[in-house]
């Protein structure tokens, strides 16, 4: 078979199989001939090595194995709408939780700074000796760091969860339309080992400092006030 015979046969077979972009396909085979001819092969040899045109043409037919789900598209869409309502509510809850964690972080940070600086806006912070204030400030600031680390991980986790759900959503729709699906994404965030290690270190050390200073603060307060329930001595919680 010569080059033109091969290409003509291939073209006819492709047409028979309703393959789109005929020229695109034929172009590749033409180029193949060009390369091989340049290497000194004859047209017959090249055509023989390329394979049978009708067999090749049949390999261009897209896989139909996934198409059998086609008729269920409407059902899938309705199902996904309900699924989206529930997951939407679920994600909203996660967002609110993240926001609460953020507020807790900022608040404890601000109160800590107020204690160190001695600012007492509207007398919101109960009175105490400055030594105790410093200890409680360190305690609050380390709690803020702990909370910030937790918040960061939570946000990253939520983001990955949403991406994973989005991929799942796309795949379900694609499968119902008989299109190829993408590989699913993991639910947990893929963080580098270094980042995870650092975050864990940060969380653990701030937790330790928080716990130690809290206990220390209580002990020192109790000693300075001369009473285990020091808050009565300093007149806290009394209007």
């Amino acid at each position: 078979m010569t080059k033109s015979e091969f290409l003509l046969q291939l073209k006819n077979e492709l047409k028979k199989n309703n393959i789109s972009d005929l020229d695109d396909v034929l172009n590749e085979y033409e180029q193949h001939f060009a390369f091989k001819l340049a290497d000194g092969f004859s047209e017959e040899e090249i055509a023989a090595k390329l394979g049978n045109p009708s067999e090749l043409a049949s390999q261009f037919i897209p896989d139909t194995s996934q198409k059998k789900y086609g008729g269920r598209k409407t059902v899938t869409i309705i199902g996904m709408i309900f699924a989206n309502i529930f997951t939407g509510a679920f994600f909203l809850m996660l967002f609110i939780f993240a926001a609460v964690m953020g507020v807790v972080t900022v608040t404890s940070g601000v109160i800590g700074i107020c204690l160190i600086g001695g600012y007492n806006i509207y007398n919101l912070i109960p009175g105490m000796p400055y030594l105790c204030a410093i200890i409680y400030a360190v305690s609050l600031l380390s709690f803020a760091i702990l909370s910030a680390a937790a918040c960061l991980y939570f946000v990253v986790f939520t983001r990955q969860l949403m991406r994973s759900y989005k991929r799942f959503h796309i795949n379900v729709m694609a499968a119902s339309a008989g299109k190829a699906t993408l590989p699913s994404l993991p639910v947990y965030p893929l963080l580098s080992a270094k980042f995870k290690r650092r975050l864990r270190m940060l969380a653990l050390s701030s937790l330790t400092v928080f716990a130690v200073t809290l206990v220390l603060g209580y002990i020192i307060s109790a000693i300075l006030a001369g009473n285990l329930e020091f808050w009565h001595v300093w007149g806290w919680f009394v209007k």
Partner: peptide, 17 residues
């Protein structure tokens, strides 16, 4: 394999993105 087999594979990979 026959030399021509690669082209259908490339096309499928392309249509799959």
């Amino acid at each position: 394999i026959a030399d021509g087999t690669v082209y259908p594979i490339l096309r499928k990979l392309k249509s799959d993105g």
